[in-house]
Amino acid sequence: MAVTPLDADSFRTLLRRQAATVTVVTAPGSPPVGFTATSFTSVSLRPPLVSFCLDRGSSSWPTVERAGHVAVHLLGEEQHEVARTFATSGIDRFAAHRGWRWGPYGVPLLDSPVAWLVCRVTQRVAAGDHAIVLAEPVQGQHAGGGAPLIYHMGRYASLTSPPEEQAAA
């Protein structure tokens, strides 16, 4: 049996079946940048390390490539619009979303996420058309027991309202 490599569309269709938490990563700059990411994960407890991935062709990459610190915001189930705003290209995301303030190290902090982490970037690893960014959390806060926003099958959902089954595109 011959095995054929997956093309990008088939790969994307398969991975849509993996549920992921939705985060917004922000970085200081003039102007600051922010983007929606579902690739956030914890990497290590000793030392504490997290990672996220970013397309090196994205408008946010030049700022993240130079940033010493970033903030990762774990969005709550009611924050669909925040996720959409920071996923929209070609707009000033911070003008469109006014609920933010300057935080430690000049990193923009969004209002009302389930939790946020300010992280020191420790490494950037090229991986295909993306970069894996490794970062050490240096500060953080959580808002209590809020349910996370989930991304599954191309839709935002929550743990209390799973996404409806959709046909693969």
Rank of each mutant, 00 (worst) to 15 (best):
Q79S: 10
G57S: 12
S59N: 08
A37F: 01
W102N: 08
S161K: 14
S60W: 09
A95K: 14
V107G: 01
V82Y: 00
G34C: 07
G57L: 13
T160H: 13
S60R: 04
C53K: 10
G146D: 05
T36L: 13
L54P: 05
V138R: 14
I91L: 13
V70G: 05
H130M: 05
L117D: 11
P163Q: 04
V107H: 03
T41Q: 07
G146R: 04
V118T: 08
P32E: 10
L75K: 02
Q79P: 09
Q123C: 07
D55Q: 14
E78M: 03
H80L: 02
S112W: 03
E77F: 02
P162K: 03
Q123D: 15
A115F: 11
T88G: 12
E81M: 01
F35A: 08
S161A: 14
V43K: 11
I132R: 02
F40H: 09
L159S: 05
Y105R: 12
S59D: 09
A143D: 12
T36Y: 00
V50P: 02
Y156N: 00
A157G: 07
L134A: 07
R84F: 00
G57Q: 14
Y151A: 06
P113S: 06
R101T: 13
S60D: 14
R46K: 13
R46S: 15
A126S: 07
D55V: 09
